[in-house]
């Protein structure tokens, strides 16, 4: 009976938690980049990851869709365990959208084709349906008039908004943001953050974002996770994180960037 309850509880967390990481380790050569990361993300939760550069925060979110391969520990995304099996990896990537620091739009394709490529090739959506969806998404990120242009003709902020639309076009359950505003000019950061806030407010979407935008973190995050030296040093709701950080390392970090 007791074990059944435990199993049920386990199932409940599996259903509840869309990302589960247990003791994840990652080495680059001899460099120990992730040193036993254990955490989970609930459905619809907005988690902001901060930390000094080289702390492993980017590496960590890149393991969630296997752009980096972890060498030890378990990662379970939407009930699928991340293994060497290509089918598992592809299944996970279909459900996980990612937005990069350097946008990584495909420069040889129009904005519209950037967005419709994966839905038509991976989800096998008819081109017309994919285009209708793409135009809706462009509307949502505020640049419907740029559909026929090439990425090189857009500003950085517009490009990043296209990148968000491209990721959303696959209708992912989770969105990963890897420093989405770090390569932008100051006046363009706001327009990208607005799109991210709108996304966070929709409640449907699970978001894991690495960012240095503390204002954004304070406003929309459910939890703030701080990384240092490949480990999680703190994991608190924003109010506690900013107002009464227990950890000395967090206080030092905040004093350096605020």
């Amino acid at each position: 009976m007791a074990t059944e309850t435990a199993a049920a509880a386990q199932d409940a967390t599996e259903v509840d938690n869309i990302v589960i990481c247990r003791d994840v380790h990652k080495w680059f050569g001899d460099f120990h980049a992730l040193r036993g990361v254990t955490t989970s993300v609930r459905r619809g939760e907005v988690v902001v990851i901060i930390g000094p550069s080289g702390s492993g925060k980017s590496t960590f979110i890149r393991t969630i869709n296997r752009l980096e391969q972890h060498q030890q520990g378990d990662i379970i995304v939407d009930g699928v365990e991340m293994t060497d099996d290509v089918r598992n990896v592809d299944a996970i990537r279909r459900e996980v959208g990612m937005v990069f620091q350097s946008f990584n739009l495909f420069p040889h394709l129009t904005v519209l084709r950037n967005i419709t490529l994966a839905p038509t090739k991976v989800r096998k959506l008819p081109q017309a349906d994919a285009e209708a969806g793409a135009r809706e998404l462009l509307e949502r990120v505020g640049i419907p008039e740029q559909a026929e242009k090439y990425p090189g003709e857009l500003s950085g902020g517009q490009q990043q908004r296209v990148a968000i639309a491209r990721a959303l076009a696959m209708q992912p359950k989770i969105m990963l943001f890897d420093e989405p505003t770090s390569a932008l000019d100051p006046e363009m950061i706001k327009e990208v953050l607005e799109v991210m806030k709108e996304l966070a407010a929709s409640q449907q979407m699970t978001i894991v974002a690495v960012t240095h935008e503390l204002g954004f973190a304070r406003e929309v995050a459910d939890r703030i996770v701080m990384f240092d030296e490949g480990q999680i040093v703190e994991d608190l709701p924003p109010s506690d994180f900013f107002n009464n950080p227990r950890n000395e390392r967090v206080r030092r970090f905040l004093s350096q960037i605020l």
């Binding site: 869709n65 752009l67 592809d90 990537r93 279909r94 996980v96 959208g97 990612m98 990069f100 350097s102 946008f103 990584n104 739009l105 495909f106 490529l117 994966a118 090739k121 991976v122 990148a163 491209r166 990721a167 696959m170």
Partner: peptide, 21 residues
């Protein structure tokens, strides 16, 4: 840029389509 292949893979495109498209 290595980000090109990463972005394509992150969208779930299979390897041969990442290369050919």
């Amino acid at each position: 840029h290595p980000g090109q292949a990463e972005a394509a893979r992150a969208l779930g495109l299979p390897g041969w389509q990442v290369t050919s498209l």
